[in-house]
């Protein structure tokens, strides 16, 4: 079972659609609510990241009996220092983005906190690929 979502850059009003749809599927699979919450929070953060920082991207969710695997691929500036980006409170978000209530520098740390496995690959000037995986049985 696979779901794909295109995420447009700068369209904050649409952020949350992928996580809502993924949430609905997880509920239909009767996944424990606490497990759902972690996944949904991580996907939502990833969605906002694509909207706020990239030039657009895609989220793919693959569901199996035991796991959900999320791939977030974007075109965009890429992350120069991943270690720094993983630090709570570190943000490169513009003032405009911050004024909308985003860009507090909690995105990637929050994703890490809410996922079982996380890998980030990024090439400056090209884009970022984020992969994470959560066990559906907690």
């Amino acid at each position: 079972m696979k779901l794909e979502f295109d995420i447009a850059s700068g369209d904050f009003s649409q952020a949350g659609q992928a996580s809502s749809r993924i949430k609905k599927v997880l509920k239909q699979l009767q996944v424990d609510p606490k497990v759902i919450k972690r996944i949904v929070v991580a996907v939502y953060e990833a969605e906002v990241n694509v909207v706020a920082h990239s030039l657009g991207g895609q989220i793919i969710a693959e569901f199996s009996n035991e796991y959900v695997e999320i791939t977030v691929q974007d075109c965009g500036p890429g992350i120069a220092d991943i270690g720094q980006a993983m630090t709570e409170g570190y943000s490169t978000a513009s003032k405009k983005v911050r004024d909308m209530g985003f860009g507090a520098g909690m995105g990637l740390p929050n994703i890490k906190r809410n996922t079982d496995e996380l890998s980030i690959e990024s090439t400056v000037g090209k884009g970022t690929c984020l992969k994470f995986k959560n066990n559906l049985n907690g």
């Binding site: 079972m1 599927v25 509920k27 239909q28 699979l29 009767q30 996944v31 569901f63 009996n65 559906l136």
Partner: peptide, 23 residues
Amino acid sequence: LPNYVFALDADRMKALEKLQKMD
């Protein structure tokens, strides 16, 4: 307590199959 009336099936394999079929 929660009441999972929106789950497609209590068995996850079956629920996944149903989801794919729905698609």
